[in-house]
Amino acid sequence: MKYWRAPLDTDEIAVVRGKVYIINDRCKGCGYCIEFCPREVLEFSKEFNIKGYHPPVVKSDGCLNCHYCELLCPEFAIYTVEAD
C-alpha cells in the first residue's frame, strides 16, 4: 500500500501482527485469498491437498490480521489470529 505521507504518529502506534492459519484440505484453489490479500503475504503452494488443489501458503510475514482472506474464502479454509 502506498501513502501520500506517513502519519505523524507512526512511531507511537503499535502495528498489529497477524498469523495466518490455513486448513489445507478444505481449499479448492480459487486463489482469491492470494489475489486480494492487501499485504500480499500468500502464494500458491507447490503441494497438492487431498482434493488435488494447490492451497495457499504464507510466503512473507507481513500479515496485519485484517481477516480479509478469512472473509473472502468461500471454503472456510483460511483465517487469521492476532500474533502473540
Binding site: 479448492k28 482469491y32 468461500p74 471454503e75 479454509a77 489470529v81 492476532e82 500474533a83 502473540d84
Partner: peptide
C-alpha cells in the same frame, strides 16, 4: 479469533462434517 485458536472462527455455525460443500472452486 483467540490467539492460537486452531479452529475457524465460524466453526460453531457450520456443519463441518458436511464439508467440503458442493460449491465449485471460485
Amino acid at each position: 479469533a483467540k490467539a492460537n485458536q486452531k479452529v475457524h472462527p465460524l466453526e460453531e455455525l457450520i456443519r463441518t462434517e458436511r464439508l467440503p460443500h458442493i460449491w465449485c472452486s471460485g
